[in-house]
Design a protein around this nucleic acid. Structure first.
Length: 300
DNA sequence: TCTGGGGTCCTAGGACCC
DNA sequence: TCTGGGGTCCTAGGACCC
């Protein structure tokens, strides 16, 4: 990301190793910008790097996917794929519908049922008919299939939720072990929230049974929190709504959403208690940061 | 196909209030 | 007292993304 931001501050990270750049303000030709950037990353990071260049994020992303997929040998892809302005729809048309953002395995099947295989076929369908067959998503897909995407490159986006889950190597049906896992997940989520200086108002748990069916249960708190104990207590209540002795669990997850920044509202009579909790939590965080997670353990 | 983890967005039903 | 509509929040599940 450092290398990217040297080029422009308009960098939107997409994942750990992908990002959108808006280089429309730079005076150089895009071909040149792309080639230089690739060379810098190859040289400085000793890593391959593929780029897609287009007039919008949707087409740039797909162009990059296409470029990378055309590598025949076992080499790591190090490609540059450019779609000139005005060529967006033509570039997308022959690609399989699945290449479009928002088309996964299920949507691919639904589209196939009405005879649509390619992005071009989506673009050619009357939008309203598409909506009749596949719902509101049809409107969005119709636009995307034509290469239309007006979303700007945004340098920051709000985090909407924080969660942590774990799949057990073996199904677990021992209450004590499950609660210990739930406690640990709650602490991870709490720490993550505190690191971001955020509070959340809705606690959600995720349970997966050995047959792979997965359920979620959530509960909204009267006030936002980022305290381990509060998250855990809520998660535990939710857990007991679905779990009974002996029931085996494959996966356990804890998440918090409804996030807000800053300090939570406190009622007056909570203040003293609150301060104690706060300082205890901060002390625990510091101890764990210095000596590791296991330095302080709670009895579930 | 036998399935990891952390996210976002959409839909749909129900409760509640005006 | 009955009826209806609309808005909002909460909950649950599912599709999709990297």
């Amino acid at each position: 990301m450092v290398q990217l931001r040297r080029l422009t501050h308009l960098v939107e990270p997409l994942s750990i190793d992908e990002a959108f750049l808006d280089v429309s303000d730079l005076s150089d030709e895009v071909e040149e910008i792309a080639a230089n950037l690739q060379a810098i990353i190859n040289l400085e990071l000793k890593l391959p790097c593929s780029l897609g260049v287009a007039s919008n994020k949707l087409v740039a992303k797909i162009a990059n996917d296409v470029g990378k997929s055309q590598i025949q040998t076992g080499d790591y892809p190090n490609t540059i794929t450019i779609v000139p302005p005005g060529q967006e729809a033509a570039f997308l048309a022959p690609l399989p519908a699945r290449a479009l953002w928002g088309v996964g395995p299920k949507m691919e099947q639904r589209l196939a049922k009405i005879g649509i295989q390619s992005i071009g076929e989506i673009a050619n369908w009357p939008e309203e008919e598409l909506v009749q067959h596949i719902g509101n998503m049809g409107r969005e897909l119709s636009r995307r299939a034509k290469g239309i995407d007006h979303r700007p490159v945004t340098t920051e986006h709000d985090v909407k939720s924080v969660s942590k889950e774990m799949t057990f190597t073996q199904d677990i049906n021992v209450q004590r072990e499950l609660l210990r896992a739930l406690r640990r997940l709650s602490e991870d989520v709490g720490r993550n929230l505190r690191r971001k200086e955020m509070f959340g108002s809705t606690v959600k748990i995720k349970l997966r049974w050995p047959d792979f069916t997965t359920i979620t249960r959530q509960s909204t708190l009267p006030r936002p929190t980022n305290h381990d104990d509060e998250i855990f207590a809520t998660a535990r209540d939710l857990f007991y709504r679905e779990w009974h002795t002996g029931k085996a669990v494959r996966l356990l997850g804890v998440g918090v959403s409804g996030l807000s920044e800053g300090y939570r509202q406190m009622s007056l009579w909570d203040a003293a208690d609150e301060n104690n909790n706060q300082s205890l939590q901060e002390t625990l965080d510091k101890l764990r940061q210095r000596y590791g997670r296991k330095v302080v353990r709670r009895g579930i």
